[in-house]
Design a protein around this nucleic acid. Sequence first.
DNA 1: TTGCTATGAATGAACG
DNA 2: CGTTCATTCATAGCAA
Lengths: 223, 223
Amino acid sequence: MENTALCGKVMTDDQIETLRRQIAAYSTICEQLAEMHRETTLRQESFTGMGMTSLYSDSAMACGSSKISARQRWTPTPMQLQILESIFYQGSGTPNKQGIKDITAKLAEHGQISETNVYNWFQNRRARSKRKQANPTQNNAESEEAECLNAKRARTEKLVPQSSNLSPVSDDHLFQDVSSELRFVDQDHGGSRAVYSFIDASKVANGSGGMAVFGNSWSNPSW
Amino acid sequence: MENTALCGKVMTDDQIETLRRQIAAYSTICEQLAEMHRETTLRQESFTGMGMTSLYSDSAMACGSSKISARQRWTPTPMQLQILESIFYQGSGTPNKQGIKDITAKLAEHGQISETNVYNWFQNRRARSKRKQANPTQNNAESEEAECLNAKRARTEKLVPQSSNLSPVSDDHLFQDVSSELRFVDQDHGGSRAVYSFIDASKVANGSGGMAVFGNSWSNPSW
DNA sequence: TTGCTATGAATGAACG
DNA sequence: CGTTCATTCATAGCAA
């Protein structure tokens, strides 16, 4: 009922996704520029005349709060999992389009779920099942040609203490991560990598829903 | 007509303004950093080839083991992605063979790439874009599983742009070509000089006129 | 906390 | 083109 007061614009999912990507791109680009600048600066640390200080001071500061990203992932309930496993076991792992729909419908009775979730689940299940079979004797230093070893610099920034980075948001938080990319000022050295900041549809059903950036005021149920 | 009107999100002017500002902030920061970098670079252009080229693109390696062999799978750099998205959004979405060549040529300035990559990218982008529309993400349902179905169906029809106080967000300007400003940023060791080449795959697009939400002010024309 | 692992999701490439 | 596969990214949990 609040819509009477608002004069809203409509965005398609695609546009939103696009926006998200663009901002993420900016984020990354800023990071790169920052990195480059830092390197460049090191080579000539003596004769820099530019007033970069001003940039540092006003544009970047404040909370080092990291990415707002809040793509929370679906987690099958035990019940759902059981059903899925069951289907996987018999159905020879190729649920067609319609099959997905049916399964989804069925699983929906046991908790929140979407067709995409089901689809992904089967994809993953099959893939990993196959891999496990192909590589049961996992040993040797060479065995790790799979996933799992990517935990290297995953610890990049990690969450910032003071608060959940996916808090319910007020519009103010929109700006918080703009500056985070520039934390290099603190000589934070350590390859922080691309980060998906920005909007991320997240709508927790049964949980204490955490909404991303635009949160509730976006006034659309499908988030 | 390809109607994307289904499943729109509504943004209030306030939110849009906020978003615009956030992006503008990124834009500004990038611009400043870029400028800084440019100036800095000029002062020492002579010595060192500075291997700062791909700061991010090497994300996949360092996997502990000694299999230094490069990754087998191409990963677009943020800049490349920007360009691709940009082109994708310019109405066309169906780059002809020559178009692929041009695009590839342009993207090559931002990193390793081949025509096949571009081709695949567009194929995938299109396919997924399409599927996403048919299958709106994450079902939300805090209500009981019971009437979910009805609600879901209803929601889909609900948000249509033509509604009185709602206006559609134009795709134009959603994707400004960020890459143009960054051409000097990730130039390859080879040319080490900013090259002004614009593929111009831009076909004036479906120029449904400016006035897009993020249009005029979310980026500085001075770039 | 710190780190590891399992696994949901994203996506480049290949197939029919 | 629409699907499917293979690989990688990112995060929820759990262990040390």
